[in-house]
Every structure is written in C-alpha cells, then in structure tokens.
Write a protein that binds this DNA or RNA. Structure first.
Lengths: 219, 219
DNA sequence: ACTTTTTTGTACCATTTCGCATTAAATTCC
DNA sequence: GGAATTTAATGCGAAATGGTACAAAAAAGT
C-alpha cells in the first residue's frame, strides 16, 4: 500500500499503450473517448443544463463509474475543458510555429478555428471557452483562471506571429504587434459567437477575410 | 368582456403614468423593476442555473405572481433579453446618431460598453447576448433570431459610422467600412468575454484603444 | 353591504437532480 | 479453485426544480 498510484509508477508511463495488466474487472469504457463525449455535451448545453444522466447516456458509463473515473460534475467539467484546450492547442500549435508568410498563417489558423466551431452533428458547437467556460468564470475562480490562461495564450501566440512578421518586413514600421494580436483574438471570439447563432460558414469566412486584409495591411 | 386588454385601450396608453384605476387587488411590485432584477440574474447565471426560487427572491414576487406577470421561465428569459437589448440600444443610439468625429464616437461607444459589462455588485456582469443568449441560441430558434438580430444591428450601426467617416475623408480611400464594422463588433465581443473573466478595466481599455487606433488609421 | 375582479401567499405535486451505498460481475494473484 | 481487487449495475434518498391549485386579501363597481 506504499504505492497508491493507479498507473504503474515508472517504466509503464513511458511506453505502455498496451496491456497494463490491471488487477480487477476491466473497464467497459475508454476514458479518453468518454471524456470526449462529455466535452461535447458540456460544450453544447453548458454546465448547468447538462445532467449526470445525460453524461451517463452519452458516455455509456453509469453514474457511479463516471464519478469514480472523473470525480463529481464540476471536476468532469474542468477535465473536459482541459481536454478541449489541449485539443485546440494541438490543432493550432504547428501553424503558429510554422515558418510561413503572415497571411497564410492567419488563414490557416482561422480555417481550423472555423472547423472546430462549426463541426458537430446537432448544430455548430461553438467554442468551449466563449460559450460556457466564460459564463462559469464569474463565480468559479479555477475556471476563471483557465479562461484567462487560454485567452492570454492565444493573445501571445498571435503576438509572436505579428512580431515575427514585422521583423521580416511583412508589416509597416508603425504596426503594433500587441494590438494586432488582440484584434486577431477578437476575430476568433466574434466568429465563435456568430457560429453559435448558426451564422453560415460563408459569412464567417467573409468576416475573417476582411479582418485578415486589415491586419496584413495595418499601418 | 369585449375588451380584454389589460391596459385601458386608447387614451390611457398615450399618457397614463398615474392611477389607471385597475379593478382588483393592486400589485405589490413594479413590473419594470422586477424585470430588471430578473435580467440581472439571468445575465449572471444563465438560463438553466437560474431557478424560479432565485427569481422569486430577487424580484420579491412569489412564483405564481411571476408566472402570471411574465409567463413561464423561458418567456421571462426572453423578456429579460428584450429588455437588455432595449437598454443597450437606448444607451448607444444617441452616440451612433451624433455628428462627431469617428474616433470620438468609437471612444464613447466603447466607454458605454465597458460600463455595461463591468457594472454590478457581484462581479462584472458581462453581455447578455454573448454570455447566455448565444448559448441558448443553438437550441432555441426564437432566441437565435434575437441574437442574430442584435449582432447585425451592431454591425450595421458601426457600418454607418465608418461609411460616414469615409465620406468625410476621415478614412483613406481603400478603407472597407463593412470590414471595419465587423472589427468594431469583434472588439465589443472580445471585451465582453474578457470582462466576464474579470480582466480589469485598465486592460480592456488598452485593448479598446489599440483597436481604435487601428480602425482610425485603417488603409 | 355585497359582488366582481385581480393579485397575493401557502402549499402541493410530479419530476429531475446529484451523489452514494450496496450488491453483482469480471479479472488477476496465490 | 479461492482470495483479493477492481469495475459495473441497480437503485435509493434527500434536495431542488418548474409549474399549479386553491384560498385569503385588497381593491373597485353596484
């Protein structure tokens, strides 16, 4: 009883995608896909409107299993949000790191953002941060910190983008990378909101294109 | 029983702020202030997390009275949202109509927006449209229509602003008023979201000022 | 004074909600 | 095969929720 960790402590963590030989009855679910389902629900309906029964039905796990695996509803919500941010970051980080012209990088970022916001069977799913986490942020300090973290992370990524572009001469001397980054984030936010109202992709793309033009020509 | 309208039908509607001489027991509440309280609650907690008990406590009306005055929870929510939009519109319409330089108009609009988003005792209250209505918009067509209406109304108001400025020579020839309007709306949206995460007014003002600089110098 | 009308206040109901206690099942270790 | 261990499944229970029935109260009309 000295080692209480659920995973074998050392070697298995490095490379153990198969057969950890757990001791008791095997799980009937895969935690990752279950968390994905929970994420979808929370993202669509928000925290309060998503019941444990809904989550149970969507994940295929009954409530005690849910509870055992992820903790209570709030913990599950937070883990879902973390998962969402991880996914979104993973989808964008390569583009932010890529060594491409400013316009192309922006175009690719916004294309991915639109893909995220507009996918889903039962209507556009929008952005977790904007649609539900920001609402909880007022009353829940932990969630608030995550939201602030996510917002500033995006600002910073765009900021690096624009600073880089300025150094390369893609932007005029007077351009202010920080302000441009805020505008780039604002464009993300506005399309997230509009996507939620089922504004068609065409219109969102038009907004994005106008914003990109402005940001690339910015004095 | 021919006239079933609650208000006296004609004359009284024109100027009757006093003593309509209603027939039964007088109301113990003023519908307008009660709706204001309901609006605050919905705006802070969203639709699902706001219970009728909460609403009852905040308005001072017991539940049957609430029901009688405003209909069920969804109707009350919609009426709250309408009220919010009316108030916001009323606070901004003068500025949008005023004949002032572009920069000054933008500054005044954003100052009012920040006032709306940051006021309130229990933390910043954010924007009703962005924080809760957009969430409901996916599943509720009526709310969705209201959200879309509000978004395009703001876009249009900013659009007129920029077209006007361009005609006056405040903007360069190549400036695109529609795109600028979308950016102006996006700036509203981004500060609404950040306000919800308790980002301090200082930072929001910095974001706004950067955006105004960009929009006023836009090529 | 009595009826009518409108609102209030209490209490209730059916349903849903979250969380957990308990038992049954499935697997590994000895 | 049996003990130990981990998970699944059923279902309970206390609280909260949205909505309403019903009687008491407060005003105006007659």
């Amino acid at each position: 009883m000295v080692q209480k960790s659920k995973r074998p402590p050392s070697a298995a963590r490095i490379a153990a995608p198969v057969a950890p030989k757990r001791r008791g009855r095997p799980r009937a679910y895969e935690p990752d896909v279950a968390l994905g389902k929970a994420l979808d629900l929370f993202r669509r309906d928000g925290f309060a409107a998503t019941s444990l029964d809904d989550l149970s039905a969507a994940t295929g796990m009954n409530r005690p299993s849910l509870y055992g695996a992820f903790g209570d509803k709030r913990e599950l919500y937070i883990k879902s949000y973390q998962r969402y941010r991880d996914d979104a970051r993973a989808a964008m980080v390569d583009i932010f790191r890529a060594d491409a012209p400013l316009r192309e990088r922006l175009e690719r970022i916004y294309r991915i953002a639109l893909d995220i916001y507009l996918s889903g069977e039962s209507g556009p799913r929008g952005c977790f941060t904007v649609m539900t986490a920001a609402s909880e942020a007022v009353s829940d300090p932990d969630i608030r910190n995550m939201v602030v973290e996510g917002l500033t992370e995006l600002d910073k990524a765009f900021g690096i983008c624009f600073r880089h572009a300025k150094e390369r001469g893609e932007l005029p001397e007077g351009a202010d990378p920080a302000s441009l980054a805020h505008l780039a984030s604002a464009t993300i936010h506005t399309i997230a909101i509009r996507a939620r109202a089922r504004v068609p992709r065409r219109e969102l793309e038009a907004i994005v294109n106008g914003a990109i033009d402005l940001m690339c020509r910015a004095k």
